[in-house]
Every structure is written in structure tokens, then in C-alpha cells.
Design a protein around this nucleic acid. Structure first.
Lengths: 343, 343
DNA sequence: TTGAAAGCGTTACCAT
DNA sequence: ATGGTAACGCTTTCAA
């Protein structure tokens, strides 16, 4: 059994390929009676246009690439990223786009994918600082061959020539810190251990801004940064150091929920009570944070929404529209649970 | 700037398109000196063959589809699935295949993707019982149009006409149960709340087999099954019922680590000590389980490996080889930590 | 060993 | 409004 082509449909409905193509694309008027016949033939045969032929002819692949810029040693699929992927995927599918996931460092993936002409647009997740591929792209921009729009999922000054949809890390962290301050905390510890270095550094700015405003001084002995290990391992490591601290902060802000949770597990097993002895908050609102002991006070970071927005932005670009906002920033909402105590 | 095509390369190196194509595919001999020239031209221009043209001509898209058969309301990307995706993705990339992720019920995704002719092969994850699309495919099998091989990531009798790579749920659960028995436990509670109904039912068989062998009777009041809610919510719900039990089991086997963890959190907050008052074990070995309080005794379920094996199997099929084993089953290894106490 | 040419399934431009 | 036809970039016969 051969596969059905547009010629078969044409034959079955007694018209030419051109006419069938016209009802398929909808760009042109065709006689209503013929249209009905054609539609019926399509229905009957279950015909679906060959995408390769369409791409070859039309210059549109109806497919986008999502680059997950992960280190090869990065074993953990984090919740927010996966939610983002889900958001991209479902909005893309809705509009008839396929999504190809490329789990590979951006510097390798980007040049390759660009030359293959196999996607109409690209979304890049988990960008780090100083990605060469992006820089050189930004330079050769205008003269660039087939223009493939790119949307980034991190924002940073250095990449600002590319449109982006990102979390408003600076502002979110600022607001969250102010909230923590408003709960009476003055002695604040920080754990930074996320692979998303851009997010971490932006958040730190926000936190410091809130500190300054309230006259809190940043204490380096309360700042724990582990970027090259598993984040949960970091939570536990910090706990060990933390327990030896002579003067302890009254609250610890972890840069992700996982870290907060493993920190809590570690200090709890040493007999410290959260939040009575020490408050701990996280960021992300991963599913587990609602069911942990105690339930975690955190920032709700809407990955799915980011994905949807990113695809929407990419689609605008694909349609040649110009963006109202080149850089979209998503605000978090604070989720009050029981790991932060009012003092 | 136009995009480089095979004709450009031909022109640059003073040969015909055919010859260029021949060095590209490597199926035919070409004069060494010409070959060198051609390769240089390719290098210089950064030429990459247009995939659409290749597919159209050659009937191979160099791309596979991965169907994540999730309910629309399924918000949680679970660890093992994501690891599997990563495994598929990296092995596919290594061999030059693109992977398209389709997050959609199998019954919708499968017929569509099959007719689009846009992928060479398909991997289906998270299959449930009685998926119509698969059944009808199995029936029309031989006469089927362009034969697209399919590899399933669950095994069950009803789908056994399709090759599969799955976890050896029955055997793994049996072994795990025997291990628990060997730790002196006789009173065993069960929590089943996973979206992977096939896995759950297979595991239950394994557990029951171990029970029988040791003369343990299955007690329905110690069997907690919640399939239609968030799994962590289930853990908490069970905890509430559990605490009211007059006679409690000495150990609870949860069908996933997340469930175990939320169960532990809930019972701990009521003052029960794990593992002193009650042992709890999970399945999966999610990253958090190593850093929880107490660290969770569990089964290590190797998602990444499953992904790699699934792609390997698909690739064999793509290459027209026949499978040595049609149904691969992956054994887990038991990870001993501190949530299971010897009694 | 190499080149010319046909053809893969579509769409868009001319004609009519 | 509709049909014929060229073209998209590639691979693979068929001849030479």
C-alpha cells in the first residue's frame, strides 16, 4: 500500500493538484462544490501532506528546535525546565508545529541546527554567560542567511539583542527578600547552588538591593555558594557548615526548593527544628515542596507559562510581526507555607 | 546571502552534483583527488545537506518521534521519564537523528504522526491499558503503508506484538519484597499511586508472589490505592488513614519515591519516627531520596539506560535487523539507606 | 569513475 | 476559478 499524495486526492475528486493545494493552504478561492469533494477525499483517505515536500518547497518546516543547554554531567532534569518544555510543546502542537529537543551545549547545537535549515525557529534554555555561538550570531546578524528567529529563556545584558522570556529574577528576589524582612528577620543566610548561573546572579542583586534598603549588611560567612556540585549535595554540605556557625542567621534563602529541602533534611536530622530554630525558604514551588515537612515557603515559578509565552513570542517572530516587548519578564508569587516563621 | 546547496559545492569543486552526492553518502567510489576537493569545499562553506530534500528523495527523515502519553492534567514531569528522554535524546543525536517530543495522548498522536511520514521511528512512553491506536495498528500490521517501527517503554501482554524496553517490574518488586522480608518484616503495607498503571499492576504481582512464598497474607486494610490524584497528595492522604489504623504494618512500600517522601513527611509531622516506628521504602531513586530525612531505601530505576536501550532497539529496527530479544527488561538494584529498619 | 536526468510531493506562477 | 508546469535540493538510476 502506497502512501496517499496530493495527486491521489486530485484524481479522486476530479480536479488538479493545484486546486487541491489551494484548498489545503486556503489562500485562494475554489468552487464550493469542488471544495466539498476534495475535503471528503481527504477525509476518506486520511491524507496528510508530506512535510518534507512542504518544507522543500515552501521554506517552512513547521518545526521548532528547543536547545537545552546542559552540561553533559547534568543529570537532573529540574522541574521548572520540564514544565517549560511542556508549555512550549503544547502550544506548539496546538498550532501545528513539531518540537525537536536538542540536549546539547548551545555552542555545538546552534551552528549545526542553523545550517541544517530543519527548523523555523529556536528556543534556547539554560543559557550560561559568554556563549560564543550567540555572540557571533549577533554580530553577523543582518547579512545572515536564512533568518531563523531565536528566543532566549534567560535574560542578560550581554544577550539583549535577542528577544527573551525570562523570570524577573532581580525583582522577584527583591520582593521575596522584602517579604522575609517583613516577617521580622534581620539575619539572613543565602545558599546559591543552581546550574542557572544567570538567574542566580540576578537574584543576588535583588536580594542585596533589599538588604541595602533596610540597612542589612551582607555577611559573607552566611553566604554559601556551591556551583559545581549536585544541588542537593550542596544543601547538605551547607548544613554541616551551618551547624558549626557560632552565630546563625534566623533564616536561610536557598536558590531552589531542592536545595532548601535537602538543607532542611540535614539540619533536621541534627535536631534543629524548622521553622522554630531556623526558617528556610526556597524558590520554584516544586511539587514536593507542598508535601515536605514542614511544607516549604517558596516562590512559585511558572515554568509552563514561560514555555507558552516563549512559543507565542517565537510564533510572532515567525509571522514577521514585530514584538511589542522584546524582553518579557515573569513575576513570581510568594507561596506562604510553614517553613518561614514570623519573629 | 543564499543558502549553500549541493550545486554550489559541485560548482566550487568542478564536478557534478552526482559526484558530490556520492561522497556525501559514501555509497560509491570517487576519485581521491576529487573527493579531497569536494570535502574542502564543504568544509569552507559549512555546507550541510538540506534535510527536507533528503527526506523527500530518500524516504528517511533521520528523525524519530517520542510520544509522552500523558493525561492533559498530568502536571508532573517525573524524574525517571525525563531521564529516559535524556537517554533517548543523547543516543539519537550521536547517530544523527533528531528527536521530536510529542506530549499528547497516544491515541491522538500515533495516527497523526504515522501519516505525516515525518519520522522514521517512534518510541512510546507511559502507555496505559487498552490504547485503541496500538490495537488497530497491530491488526493492520503487515499491509501497513510505510512501515514505521515502534518501540514501547512498557511491557504488557496485550501489546506484546510490539517490541519493548521496560523495567522488569514483576521481578524487581518480587526481589525488593524478598529483601524487605529478609529484614524481618512480616506486616507490610502498600501504597500504589502512580500514573504508570501498567507498572503498578505488574509490581503488585511480584509483591504478592513474594508474599505467597513466605506465607504472608495480603491484608486489604493495608493496601492503599489512589490513582486519580497527585501522587504526593496520595502520600499524605494515606498517612492520615494510616495513623488511625489500630494495628499498623511495620513497613510501607510506596510505588514511587515521591509518594514515600510525602508519606514520611506526613507521618513525621505527627510524631512518628521513620524508621524506628515505621519503615518506609520507595521505588525510583530520585535525586531527593538520597538527601531526605531519613535517606530513603529504594530501588534504583535507571531511566537513562532505558532510553539508550530503547533508541538502540529502534535503530536496529530502522536498519532492518531483527531483534535478538523482542522484549528487554531492566533489573533494578536495591539502594540500602536508612528508611528501612531491620527488626 | 563520472555526468545527465528523472523524480520525490508540494506550492506558486502563468495561462486560460 | 482552475489546470499546467516549474522549481525546491537531493539521490539514484542509466549511459557513457
Amino acid at each position: 500500500m502506497k502512501t496517499t499524495t496530493i495527486s491521489d486526492i486530485a484524481l479522486l475528486s476530479g480536479v488538479s493538484k493545484s486546486t487541491v493545494s489551494r484548498v489545503l493552504t486556503g489562500n485562494s478561492f475554489v468552487d464550493e462544490s469542488k471544495k466539498i469533494k476534495i475535503l471528503k477525499a481527504i477525509e476518506d483517505t486520511g491524507y496528510i501532506p508530506n512535510t518534507a515536500a512542504q518544507s522543500l518547497r515552501g521554506r517552512s518546516t513547521k518545526s521548532i528546535g528547543v536547545i537545552l543547554n546542559l552540561d553533559p554531567d547534568y543529570h537532573f532534569s529540574d522541574f521548572v525546565s520540564m514544565e517549560t518544555l511542556r508549555g512550549i510543546s503544547s502550544s506548539a502542537q496546538m498550532l501545528g508545529y513539531r518540537v525537536s529537543v536538542i540536549i546539547e551545549p548551545c555552542n555545538q547545537a546552534l551552528p549545526k541546527i542553523l545550517r541544517e535549515q530543519s527548523v523555523d525557529g529556536i528556543i534556547v534554555m539554560g543559557l550560561k554567560e559568554k556563549e560564543e555561538a550567540l555572540f557571533s550570531l549577533a554580530k553577523t546578524d543582518n547579512s545572515e542567511s536564512p533568518h531563523v528567529p531565536i528566543v532566549l529563556l534567560n535574560y542578560s545584558e550581554e544577550y539583549k539583542s535577542f528577544p527573551s522570556v525570562s523570570f524577573d529574577n532581580e525583582e522577584n528576589a527583591y520582593n521575596f527578600t522584602r517579604y522575609i524582612l517583613s516577617m521580622g528577620h534581620q539575619d539572613i543566610g543565602l545558599i546559591d547552588s543552581s546550574k542557572d548561573v544567570l538567574a542566580v546572579s540576578n537574584r543576588k542583586h535583588g536580594i542585596l538591593r533589599a538588604f541595602e534598603e533596610s540597612g542589612i549588611v551582607f555577611r559573607s560567612e552566611w553566604y554559601f555558594e556551591y556551583t559545581n556540585i549536585n544541588k542537593m549535595e550542596a544543601g547538605r554540605k551547607v548544613a554541616i557548615n551551618f551547624l558549626q556557625l557560632e552565630k546563625k542567621p534566623s533564616v536561610v534563602i536557598a536558590s531552589e526548593d531542592d536545595i532548601a529541602l535537602s538543607f532542611i533534611a540535614a539540619v533536621s536530622s541534627s535536631g534543629l527544628k524548622v521553622p522554630d530554630d531556623i526558617s528556610v525558604v526556597g524558590v520554584d514551588n516544586i511539587p514536593m515542596s507542598q508535601y515536605s515537612n514542614p511544607p516549604l515557603t517558596t516562590e512559585k515559578v511558572e515554568g509552563y507559562r514561560r514555555g507558552v509565552m516563549a512559543f507565542k513570542m517565537l510564533k510572532s517572530l515567525l509571522d514577521g510581526e514585530d514584538l511589542k516587548e522584546k524582553h518579557l519578564k515573569i513575576r513570581s508569587v510568594i507561596v506562604e507555607r510553614n517553613s518561614l516563621k514570623k519573629i
